[in-house]
């Protein structure tokens, strides 16, 4: 089964994306903070992560991204954020992000991008 982890501090966004991808036969887990996300990665072993940059509690999306990529370089991480500064994007790419999508986003594009990441992974296997 395709496994997706959604990390966002906004519960509404988590719930919406969870429902959306579950209807497309994904197994979806959500996390609301950096530490929660790291724990979920260890236990859930997702194929793809949708990761918000701005999260309260000291550990932001970029720090989470770096830790995940250090330990699990194969997990595809798509940054999903309202922040769109050149520095943030470059930083995310340097840490190994697989894509960078800004909110508000096109749902069609998001679905396609997640699907593509899954296909790349299964092709590698």
């Amino acid at each position: 089964m395709k496994k997706l982890l959604v990390v966002d501090d906004e519960v509404e966004i988590c719930e919406f994306l969870k429902a959306f991808f579950e209807e497309r036969d994904y197994e979806v887990l959500t996390a609301r903070s950096g530490p929660e996300a790291l724990e979920a990665v260890d236990n859930f072993q997702p194929h793809v992560i949708l990761l918000d940059i701005f999260m309260p509690g000291g550990l932001d999306g970029l720090a989470v991204l770096k830790r995940i990529k250090d330990r699990y370089p194969n997990i595809k991480v798509i940054m999903v954020t309202a922040l769109e500064t050149r520095e943030k994007i470059e930083e995310a790419m340097r840490f190994g992000a697989d894509n960078y999508i800004t909110k508000p986003l096109s749902l069609e594009y998001l679905e396609k991008d997640v699907q593509e990441k899954i296909e790349v992974l299964s092709g590698n296997r």
């Binding site: 919406f16 986003l105 096109s106």
Partner: peptide, 8 residues
């Protein structure tokens, strides 16, 4: 409902 600010 659709979260405000997420989708365009």
């Amino acid at each position: 409902r659709v979260p405000i600010g997420l989708i365009k």
